[in-house]
């Protein structure tokens, strides 16, 4: 830490938006507001306003829709002794219950957290962030929101674990007569759900979190929108 966050909240901070400029989210370069594309890195320049939230909500909804079949359909089908000992189809939750049944509590917790808790928390967090984005907030609230955003962005891709587990098990456990595991349709919809929520989190513009802070030039700010 050089210039600490501790001294930051004291004075209003000059932002690119307040200066009538546009910052590039990809490389940080600052351009006049009529620029559409960053000349340095070639990324599209987007003003930090609530219009961008449409993308967030669109991907969010797509992710939520795909999450329903991901829980209803079986994730994988296990066949032991050519079906003589029964072949079982397990959805995500049934898989967790099965793991607990065999006493693998630690793995059951990992799978439960990765494929149930994390996706749920992600949907709720993104929805909440998108709803409060741009609303007035204190500096502490803004820091909390940014933290949540960073956690969501970081953790999103880890939900893909479940898809990989199914892939590895299906490739590995092909013991002919003894046991075999086949992937179920839920694997696809779960993978899509994770991908869509990742896109949703990426579409969220964290600069919006800070737009709602009380500013010295608040009226100017509103006039610009």
């Amino acid at each position: 830490m050089t210039a600490g966050a501790d001294e930051a909240p004291l004075a209003p901070v000059m932002t690119a938006h307040r200066a009538g400029l546009l910052g590039c989210r990809s490389c940080g370069r600052v351009w006049p507001q009529d620029h559409a594309i960053c000349d340095r890195c070639g990324a599209a320049l987007v003003p930090p306003d609530r219009r961008g939230l449409q993308y967030v909500w669109a991907w969010w909804l797509a992710g939520l829709v795909m999450y329903v079949p991901a829980n209803l359909f079986p994730m994988m089908r296990t066949q032991t002794f050519a079906g003589l000992q029964g072949s079982s189809e397990a959805t995500i939750l049934e898989g967790v219950v099965e793991l607990m049944h065999y006493g693998n509590y630690d793995i059951a917790i990992i799978v439960f957290v990765a494929s149930v808790i994390v996706p749920m928390a992600k949907f709720l967090s993104i929805a909440w962030l998108a709803m409060v984005a741009g609303r007035p907030a204190t500096v502490e609230q803004a820091h909390t929101r940014l933290k949540i955003y960073e956690v969501v962005e970081f953790i999103g891709r880890w939900s893909m674990i479940d898809v990989f587990v199914v892939a590895i098990l299906s490739a590995l456990v092909q013991l002919g007569f003894v046991a075999s595991i086949h992937p179920g349709p839920a694997a696809v919809s779960f993978a899509l759900s994770v991908a869509f929520t990742m896109l949703s989190a990426q579409s969220f513009d964290p600069r919006l979190i800070w737009r709602g802070l009380p500013l010295r030039s608040r009226t100017d700010d509103q006039g610009k929108d």
Partner: peptide, 10 residues
Amino acid sequence: LMACPRCDAL
């Protein structure tokens, strides 16, 4: 100038 990609501070 450079703008913070997370909070737009210059």
